[in-house]
Design a protein around this nucleic acid. Structure first.
Lengths: 201, 201
DNA sequence: CTGCCGTACTGACAAATGTCATCGGCAGTA
DNA sequence: TACTGCCGATGACATTTGTCAGTACGGCAG
């Protein structure tokens, strides 16, 4: 019997998936939670074999949650389910010890198989996504460049970014400039947009 | 027997929801499609009683699809399901003749009830969302202002926007300026971001 | 018929932004 | 040791931007 934890903030999906997987004779859905912290808490109490996590969740994103689980409960196998799979996120997920990466465009029937494979310790990555990630290559941006891009995405001015990151305006502009060059963008907002689409933010 | 059409580009969710609703004795899922155009085609052929549409779909957004359905098959009752319900979208959906508006954070069990209510011609709007929409009020932006904001969201420069909309740079800047004033934003990107969050783009 | 509003444009000005060259410090590493 | 790369900063420069004032035209409600 595979003991499964489900984390997804969309009740509708979580409920439906739970109902579907519960029909499988060898799968037992032991917990359903809606956010990262409660997933962590439930996992510590119930020690599931497999944790199936949504990538987009309030409070704690799926990757952070995966990292926390890896550190605290290394025996738990982790599968990530996501809506729009951005290539860069795959890199980070794999580094966090995630075994499976499934887009929500996958067939519902295939989910049970993913759970079984992950439970057996096998990797299970969407092939399209894997090639996309390979083509995009690793992120060329430095941590600081990522920081300023993250702030830019919300439309912050250089002044505001400089304050928030405790930097000079000139420094911020330089980081933005190099990031724009690396991403072949005309404006920082375009750069931020692109970096996000590639999953680097 | 309620004949239901399901449109959602996420197979995983669509499959799970279809499986759940098919268990209901009075609901018959007659079609499952992944995008707007095929939903329209399927609806014309099968004449479902209720169409349950995802808001975010490739090619044709849920609202456009609802409008098309209203024009071509006015007898079809429409329910919209969405992930992040932005208030402004509700306005547009209601104008498009949509009866139900359900966030994906709703309970899976409640879905069947929504289908039944909609089939009976009753409205079924998430109360939280309704109050949010009331508080935000109607969109104060003119159509042209919305146009330039839409372009801004992808990080386009004034030059590019002017070209794409066949306007002068000065005109574009003026529209951006008024939009920023109305939205109380420091930069056009912040304005675009805010307008999007309110569901006006 | 007369405001009022949305659309579209012009010109001018100050401020914000993007680019470049250059510097110093610090951590790997060949 | 010398080299490389990231971090942080400075100063100067040309562009881009946001803002403001003003013009003009069409549609529409009072």
């Amino acid at each position: 019997m595979i003991r499964l934890l489900l984390a997804d903030d969309e009740h509708l999906i979580r409920g439906a998936v739970a109902a579907l997987l519960a029909l499988e004779p060898d799968i037992d859905v032991v917990a359903e939670v809606a956010d990262g912290p409660s997933a962590l808490k439930a996992a510590k109490e119930l020690r599931p074999d497999v944790a199936m996590l949504d990538l987009e969740m309030p409070d704690m994103d799926g990757i952070e949650l995966a990292e926390a689980l890896r550190d605290e409960l290394p025996k738990t196998r982790i599968a990530i389910v996501t809506r729009h799979a951005r290539p860069g996120v795959l890199h980070r997920a794999l580094n966090a010890g995630v075994l499976a990466f499934v887009p929500k465009t996958a067939q519902a029937q295939s989910l049970a198989d993913v759970v079984r494979k992950v439970n057996a310790g096998q990797r299970c990555i969407d092939p399209d996504l894997a090639t996309q990630a390979l083509l995009a290559g690793p992120c060329p941006l430095t941590p600081r460049e990522l920081d300023v891009l993250r702030e830019s995405r919300e439309g912050a001015t250089v002044q505001v970014i400089a304050q928030r990151l405790h930097l000079t305006q000139g420094t911020v502009r330089n980081y933005l400039s190099t990031a724009m060059t690396k991403l072949d963008a005309e404006t920082r907002y375009e750069a931020a947009q692109r970096a996000w689409e590639l999953g680097w933010l």
